[in-house]
Design a protein around this nucleic acid. Sequence first.
DNA 1: CGGCTCTTTGACCCGACTCAACGCTCGTGG
DNA 2: CCACGAGCGTTGAGTCGGGTCAAAGAGCCG
Lengths: 187, 187
Amino acid sequence: MEGFAARYKILPSGRRQITAIHVPGDFVDLHSFLLKTMDHGVMALTACELALVPHATLLRITEEKPHLARLLWLGTLIDAAIHREWLTMMGRSSATAHMAHLICELFCRLQLVGLTDGWSFRCPLTQEELGDTLGLSTVHVNRVLKELRERKLVSWQNGIVTIANWQGLQDLGEFSELYLNLIREPR
Amino acid sequence: MEGFAARYKILPSGRRQITAIHVPGDFVDLHSFLLKTMDHGVMALTACELALVPHATLLRITEEKPHLARLLWLGTLIDAAIHREWLTMMGRSSATAHMAHLICELFCRLQLVGLTDGWSFRCPLTQEELGDTLGLSTVHVNRVLKELRERKLVSWQNGIVTIANWQGLQDLGEFSELYLNLIREPR
DNA sequence: CGGCTCTTTGACCCGACTCAACGCTCGTGG
DNA sequence: CCACGAGCGTTGAGTCGGGTCAAAGAGCCG
């Protein structure tokens, strides 16, 4: 898929939670392949270009190409690992640390697909969407971003995120890219 | 697996978050099969009896028994669906609603494996572990349980959970069992 | 120019946390 | 048989992070 997308859930009360953010190159909705009932929605955050894979094709892959099937499976396992990391930050860290962590994660994932430019990258999320991702109010998202800017860790303006102090940001967010299961050169 | 277990993460700061609770019958750690680095720990909540499956066997299953492999995959997808649901409750609901939701989920999962007794079931979590599951302090867990008891929705005493008002509990927790992907008779 | 979406800021409030103490139960050793 | 400590549950007082409400900029398009 080209472009950014998100998976989300909406509670009966109307509150929305974004449960995953997809960057260009991600296989977005493999989860719906085997699940009987789709438990969440998918939305585009930018204009997207996507490739569709019929379930019949996936089924055939599991029958005939076990190696490829394992790779697809791995993709969903990494999604789950990210869910666990988010759960941990959601439950056990402050709003500021959580935001720092999310920025670190996005940076790593985007760098892997070559979408970073030095310490900067484009990120199309509005503050409202960020709030729905982190479980915060829009107002508080704004204050957190202001704090990160004032602490000279990172700035997020006009859809461009620029990391000013990677080590500091990583420490604040208690971030370690291990859970992303990326294979690449050490930084 | 017989007995209760949990998967958890510990942050550098020392704070713990439980990311999954496993009930008897669950395939506990299929996630470690394909993931290069194990991103979390597993702990027993009670004495457990378990069956081990070597990775080589799993590998062979994916090569030779695609139908079975899809079932295993489905298991991990359901784990991910539960993670998304927890994420949503964590980010977008009150402590009381979150607790109600967790109790509803445990009830449904335990009923499926025949471990409920009417509206009661055994649940070995301490309040500290409950707090680490819900992202709350031990003290607040206690207050939330007290509130649920006083509202005559559910009681949790000496490791026995008894649901007094299923509909009320479900409404409060905005619970719908859909995400669990259970196949069974409607209640 | 007006209207829309998104961002920013201030004032006030409340849900959940921390600290601290006390109670209960059970297992262990003198 | 009782004393003691460990682990878990319960409760109160005070604090604070993040929410809500409200209003004002800032960029963008028609």
